[in-house]
Design a protein around this nucleic acid. Structure first.
Lengths: 194, 194
DNA sequence: TAAGTAAAAATGAACGTTCATTCTTTTTTT
DNA sequence: AAAAAAAGAATGAACGTTCATTTTTACTTA
């Protein structure tokens, strides 16, 4: 009861500030004092919502990861064909990475550093199951190469992270036709060549 | 003259310690004191070889990146066919990422965080030209899809980083046949479908 | 070759700062 | 008016960096 009374707005502001500061400065240059300042809150207040800095980052990671996978699978239904299902999920993921770029960047940074502790990382992986099931079905139907999920993920999904980061750094501008090209490359890499 | 007298061994030990500690603990949890201890050197000695912590990380990044690209292109020759050239370079890169896993992990972490400053990052990109030239040739010959280098890189090369990181985390074990499968996926994603 | 010496390299301890976290007090809510 | 939430100031630890000193190296001279 006590916890529910606490303003959810403050918690959200803290999570938001964490994402923004870690994205721009890195975890190593994101002190609690700056997070507090950006969230317009006293440093002490952070500790009413989070155990410590690690907990703040872990919870932020898990929340953003859940938001990501929810978005990815929101319109997917299991009775779709493998090809339609894959295209739908892939494009939802692309959409998320472009529209919620800040959140996707934060995930990329977490996934490539020891910034997140192992339990939180494992928690974050759980939600990908619908995609793995889809691939399983695709393998059975002879449409998807019989590869391990890791390799399928590496070629079908992960390249989007690279493109997003590259775009964020200003190296080039992703547009609609790039997305279509990338989707074709993704599908070509995992589909069975007839 | 003065600088050349300084023991190159100590510098190397510092670079090595930086890679190892940043890999295992992240930049944020790698104090100069630990780097010094691991390199069996006084903290003060670091400042004889490097301006400050940022400079140490920047120089380490540039060195490892150069080592990586040197390895990738060591046996490549420009008169090779596009297909042979690509397979050769790709497999050299895969080789490096598996054999020099620590170094490759360090690069991945640098490339996905604001840990490295922008000039050093730009310096690190320079050496990839032979691969871009090969793709250019492949496009002219109608063998490689007419995509931007960023997209080609995202699908042909970058997935190896994901596989390497996943393997390092112990999620699965990469073997020879995985490498062959991954190579096929890479080529399938960028080659023109006849 | 051996002794002497000046410069360079290396060191451990110390400095000032910044950090995550806690303490005490004030403000807000019920 | 009691309890919960929030605040600012305070705290001790840890950090990057520098300082004062010692050790090692390279070179000169006998």
């Amino acid at each position: 009861m006590a916890k529910l009374q606490k303003s959810i707005d403050k918690r959200n502001a803290l999570v938001k500030a964490t994402i923004e500061l870690v994205n721009n400065n890195g975890f190593h240059a994101t002190p609690m004092s700056k997070i507090a300042k950006m969230a317009k809150v006293s440093p002490a207040t952070i500790y009413l919502y989070f155990e410590n800095k690690q907990d703040l980052v872990n919870q932020t990671y898990i929340e953003v990861k859940a938001e990501y996978t929810n978005y990815a699978f929101a319109t997917y239904e299991e009775n779709m064909s493998v090809e339609d299902g894959f295209e739908l999920i892939w494009k939802r993921i692309a959409d998320f990475k472009l529209k919620e770029c800040e959140h996707a960047m934060f995930l990329a940074q977490c996934d490539n550093t020891p910034m997140i502790d192992e339990p939180s990382r494992i928690e974050g992986i759980k939600h990908l199951q619908p995609l793995l099931d889809l691939w399983q079905r695709g393998k059975k139907e002879g449409l998807v190469k019989p590869l391990s999920d890791f390799i399928l993920y590496a070629y079908a999904i992960n390249p989007l992270s690279f493109l997003m980061i590259t775009q964020k750094r200003g190296a080039f501008q992703l547009n609609e036709s790039h997305i279509e090209e990338a989707y074709q490359a993704a599908w070509d890499s995992i589909k069975v060549n007839k």
